[in-house]
Structure formats: structure tokens, C-alpha cells
Computed example of a mutant assay.
Amino acid sequence: MYTLTCLGRVVVTVGAALVLATGLSTSAQAATGHLAYRSTNGEELTLDNPHNGECFLLVSGARRADNNSDTRATFYEEPGDCESPVVGTLQPRTARSFEGGTIPRSVKFG
């Protein structure tokens, strides 16, 4: 009887560990790589391995952006508001200039 109780505890413990391990690995996904951009002030700035679904402020807006990540980037007009009108999207490993048009002030990956 003691052996069955001990074996049951081991099975429950291993099962719980597997659920935790697989559940946590998919919940915090991030783009691999970086977004490099030139602000309207001429500064060269970078977002490294940004989390998917999170809204990032583009300091002073972006005149040019290089999406050197493995995830699509969507740019928005308002600062810190990834619900405002979309300015454009960049597929992975592509670049774009926003000169002469609406300057994006936020970006979201995924």
C-alpha cells in the first residue's frame, strides 16, 4: 500500500511539473532579434527581443525603422497607444522610411 501511495505522489508531481513547464514556455513569447529605428531627433534607438502583443513607445517617433526580428511589427500613430490608426507594418527582416508621411510613435509585435 505504501508503494502505491508513493508512486501516486511521484506521478502527480511529474505531471504538475510538465504542465507548469509547457504552460510557462508558451505564455511569454518574444520576437527574436531587434527593431532599430532613427527618431525624429536623429537618435539611433533599438528594441531588443520585444515581447509579442506589448505596446512599445517609439521615443520621439520613428523616421526610419529596420525590423531585424523574426516577427511582424505594426506601427501606430499615437504614442503608447497601439489602438490608434495604423501607420504601417514591417514584415521580419525588412525596413521602411516614414519620411514625408505620418510618423509612427508606437509599435507592437506579433
Results as ranks from 00 to 15, higher is better:
1 M>W: 04
2 Y>N: 15
4 L>K: 14
6 C>K: 12
6 C>R: 15
7 L>C: 09
7 L>N: 02
8 G>W: 09
9 R>A: 12
9 R>T: 08
9 R>N: 13
13 T>K: 07
13 T>G: 07
14 V>D: 06
15 G>P: 05
16 A>M: 12
16 A>N: 08
18 L>H: 12
18 L>K: 13
19 V>W: 15
20 L>G: 15
22 T>Y: 14
23 G>Y: 10
23 G>P: 08
23 G>C: 08
25 S>H: 12
25 S>I: 07
27 S>R: 15
28 A>Q: 12
29 Q>H: 10
29 Q>A: 02
29 Q>K: 10
32 T>Q: 11
32 T>R: 08
33 G>D: 02
34 H>Y: 08
34 H>F: 09
37 Y>Q: 02
37 Y>S: 03
38 R>D: 04
39 S>M: 10
42 G>T: 08
42 G>I: 07
45 L>A: 03
46 T>A: 15
46 T>K: 14
46 T>I: 13
47 L>C: 02
52 N>D: 11
52 N>C: 13
53 G>S: 14
55 C>A: 09
56 F>R: 07
58 L>S: 04
59 V>G: 03
59 V>A: 14
59 V>L: 13
59 V>C: 01
60 S>M: 06
60 S>C: 07
61 G>C: 05
61 G>M: 04
62 A>M: 06
64 R>M: 04
64 R>E: 11
65 A>Y: 03
65 A>K: 00
67 N>C: 00
67 N>T: 09
68 N>Q: 15
68 N>G: 08
69 S>K: 09
69 S>C: 11
70 D>I: 10
71 T>N: 01
71 T>C: 07
72 R>P: 00
73 A>K: 00
73 A>H: 02
76 Y>K: 00
77 E>M: 11
79 P>A: 08
80 G>C: 09
84 S>L: 04
86 V>G: 03
87 V>E: 00
90 L>P: 00
90 L>H: 00
91 Q>G: 00
93 R>T: 12
93 R>N: 13
96 R>P: 00
96 R>H: 01
96 R>M: 04
97 S>E: 06
97 S>Y: 03
98 F>C: 02
99 E>Q: 11
99 E>M: 09
100 G>P: 03
101 G>I: 03
106 S>V: 06
107 V>K: 01
108 K>H: 07
109 F>P: 05
